[in-house]
């Protein structure tokens, strides 16, 4: 089944107001900025954001007023520190944050993926992150030892959005680089949007099943979006635009600065092509791969 959609149609169809949306699951790599910006342009409201860490995309969605609450381990700008819209939303507007840790978010998604109500862990025993947090319940091991554990509640996002290198039109997706919690986030989700640098023929994906991280039958929409993860990196396609993260930090200190940033980079650009035009040919070329490093071919023959 051909699931190829434009970004506009994919977000319109699969990300309703009030949805819980998991994104940025590969940590600092392959963050689906193009999808996030389309959510902002379509003025989605009441969104619950889910992700381990967020390298400024959460901050942008929060600054744009899309977000009701956040379930995350870390929200900020990894290279620079704080993210100002997130801070303003929590400090001034009382936005709800479910404090998780990377491992407990992973377990919540894994429990969701497995269809069990919780998974146990020893992390965060004695930590305040668990206080008044419905993701945590104190239990004791039912087996010998009876040691104390946290039960971490299962989490099933309404939509998980991932950015990958290539996918076919059914959504079978290849990804390389680091996965973070993407595999769990995809399997826990009720719906999945795959954003790919390139849409390729099914034979390309089928040629290397070990690199297939998402089976197409779990996918609802496929979007082709070259440079769709900028300013985060995509291995083999473009590097991280470090200056962009630095500039974002400097250009979003106040609410009006943040609004101006969103106008310039999101509202006033119609789509990713316009965004890239604004970024400029020079910058785009500078971020591109300078030295290819292909893996040795794997022989699946028999």
């Amino acid at each position: 089944m051909d699931k190829l959609l434009s970004m506009r149609d994919a977000i319109q169809e699969w990300v309703p107001d009030g949805a819980s949306v998991a994104l940025g699951l590969q940590l600092e790599q392959m963050i689906p900025f193009a999808a996030g910006h389309e959510i902002i342009r379509q003025k989605k409201r009441g969104i619950t954001l889910i992700g381990p860490i967020s390298d400024i995309l959460f901050d942008q969605l929060i600054g744009a007023g899309c977000v009701k609450q956040v379930m995350a381990a870390w929200v900020g700008n990894v290279m620079m520190g704080s993210a100002y819209s997130f801070r303003r939303a929590v400090e001034q507007d009382g936005m709800k944050v479910f404090n998780l840790t990377n491992l407990t978010l992973l377990l919540a998604l894994e429990a969701g993926a497995m269809g069990v109500p919780f998974l146990p862990t020893r992390t965060a025993l004695g930590s305040d992150v668990a206080k008044g947090n419905h993701f945590f319940c104190a239990i004791f091991s039912p087996f010998e030892g009876k040691e104390p554990l946290w039960a971490v509640r299962a989490l099933n996002p309404d939509v998980t959005i991932v950015h990958v290198q290539r996918a076919d039109r059914e959504g079978n997706a290849h990804c390389w680089g680091n996965f973070g919690v993407m595999l769990e986030g995809v399997r826990a989700a009720k719906r999945v949007i795959v954003v790919a640098e390139e849409v390729v023929e099914p034979e390309v994906v089928a040629s290397d099943p070990n690199r297939t991280v998402i089976p197409g039958f779990l996918v609802n929409a496929v979007v082709e979006s070259p440079f769709g993860a900028h300013p985060s990196p995509v291995q083999g396609y473009y590097k991280r635009d470090d200056a962009f993260f630095r500039q974002y930090h400097e250009q979003t200190r106040t609410k009006s600065d943040s609004d101006a940033w969103l106008r310039r980079w999101v509202y006033d650009v119609a789509d990713r092509r316009a965004y890239l035009n604004q970024l400029g040919v020079c910058r785009v070329e500078r971020l591109g791969v300078k030295q290819h490093a292909y893996a040795a071919p794997a022989d699946y023959g028999y």
Partner: peptide, 26 residues
């Protein structure tokens, strides 16, 4: 600047997912 920058992937001993490293920690 971050652990997921492409130079940290190139030539890595292994590059998989959080569960792989967090289970070793756990």
């Amino acid at each position: 600047y971050t652990m997921a920058d492409p130079p940290n992937i190139l030539g890595a001993t292994e590059c998989l997912d959080m569960k792989g490293v967090m289970s070793l920690l756990h």
